[in-house]
Amino acid sequence: MSALGWLTPRRRSATARSVLAGEAAAEAARKSVQEQAAEEAAAPEEAVEPQFPVVGDVHAAAFFDLDNTVMQGAAIFHLGRGLYKRHFFQKRELARFAWQQTWFRLAGVEDPAHMEDARNSALSIVKGHRVSELMSIGEEIYDEYMAERIWPGTRALAQAHLDAGQRVWLVTAAPVETATIIARRLGLTGALGTVAESVGGIYTGRLVGEPLHGPAKAEAVRALAAAEGLDLARCAAYSDSSNDIPMLSIVGHPYAINPDTRLRKHAREQGWRLRDYRTGRKAAKVGIPAAAGVGALAGGAAAAVAVHRRRR
């Protein structure tokens, strides 16, 4: 008698169907695994992205925009808030600074008219004050208004370059004194920024050259690369603003950080990498950057002034 002989015909039929179902399920599972393994074996290997930043590459460096890239908002507006607290100017000027900062944070882009107005306001405010005084106050203002506004994600990117043994620079239209304080507090190599004229250590209320903005940033990076023996094709640059496309375009590893609409579109078209820390979403990567055209040309007036200021 078979193993199922003692069962009634109906029970034998049900049991047989169960056995068949189990065997069929097991066979299907084995077949699925085998097919998947075959597909994986036949699939071409994915290109492995090279390690970046490259550890020990002394001819590479990273250049970071400041406003809305490393820090929420604009440094010059935070500076204005701190100066008002110390009675450098009156409520009318504070209202203008507040409006400019609100507009900047809502729009998420740099408007040249707003930035120029803020710059002129700041220059008039510091006129007649000592550079050493503003540096000391700048340290306090960093602790009061800026430290908590540093983007952790961007800070981690900068640290990755530092950990790889590379130099990291801020490149910003903010006053070079403010940029230098922020760079030092973050443990970065240094900063390129807009230089306000001073005579005998006292601000005159005028600029030396022009604001370090737009194409001037690219010239500053070129000048610094030439002076420091850097290969721009191995360097990285990070910014949120389409105004910095010239700077991003001269390095081999451009990143769009918290990008405005125009920069986001340009980054996608060029295959640049993208990081957005504004909503807490996991950073998204858009393509792998191709090496951009590079050169070690002497910089323009703004770049020369910035490099000279850094070495004084």
Rank of each mutant, 00 (worst) to 15 (best):
residue 106 L to T: 11
residue 64 F to Y: 06
residue 207 L to T: 02
residue 156 A to Q: 15
residue 103 W to C: 08
residue 184 R to N: 11
residue 74 A to I: 03
residue 133 E to G: 08
residue 111 D to I: 07
residue 90 Q to I: 06
residue 184 R to E: 15
residue 211 P to Y: 01
residue 107 A to K: 10
residue 218 A to M: 02
residue 160 A to C: 10
residue 37 A to E: 14
residue 241 S to N: 15
residue 35 E to G: 00
residue 52 F to Q: 13
residue 51 Q to V: 15
residue 52 F to V: 10
residue 97 F to N: 13
residue 298 A to G: 07
residue 5 G to I: 02
residue 132 S to V: 12
residue 263 L to H: 02
residue 190 G to D: 14
residue 104 F to V: 03
residue 130 R to M: 08
residue 225 A to H: 01
residue 209 G to T: 06
residue 8 T to Y: 04
residue 238 Y to S: 04
residue 190 G to Q: 03
residue 269 E to T: 07
residue 81 R to I: 09
residue 131 V to F: 11
residue 103 W to H: 14
residue 301 A to C: 02
residue 243 N to Q: 04
residue 238 Y to A: 05
residue 84 Y to D: 07
residue 80 G to P: 07
residue 311 R to P: 00
residue 230 L to I: 00
residue 185 R to G: 02
residue 1 M to W: 10
residue 174 A to C: 07
residue 220 A to Y: 03
residue 45 E to N: 09
residue 64 F to G: 04
residue 239 S to M: 01
residue 241 S to K: 07
residue 155 R to P: 00
residue 82 G to K: 06
residue 193 G to H: 02
residue 37 A to Y: 00
residue 176 V to E: 11
residue 265 K to E: 15
residue 273 R to S: 09
residue 59 H to I: 00
residue 251 V to K: 05
residue 234 R to C: 11
residue 299 G to L: 06
residue 49 E to C: 07
residue 289 P to A: 13
residue 28 A to C: 09
residue 258 N to S: 05
residue 211 P to E: 06
residue 103 W to G: 00
residue 158 A to T: 04
residue 13 S to I: 01
residue 48 V to E: 15
residue 96 R to Q: 14
residue 245 I to N: 01
residue 185 R to E: 11
residue 105 R to S: 13
residue 209 G to W: 08
residue 95 A to I: 08
residue 196 A to I: 06
residue 190 G to R: 05
residue 44 P to K: 10
residue 42 A to F: 07
residue 95 A to Y: 11
residue 92 R to V: 13
residue 133 E to L: 14
residue 266 H to T: 12
residue 196 A to T: 04
residue 113 A to S: 08
residue 128 G to V: 07
residue 161 H to Q: 12
residue 169 W to S: 07
residue 252 G to P: 02
residue 282 K to I: 03
residue 65 D to Y: 01
residue 10 R to P: 00
residue 73 G to C: 06
residue 88 F to V: 04
residue 170 L to F: 10
residue 209 G to Q: 12
residue 171 V to I: 06
residue 32 S to L: 13
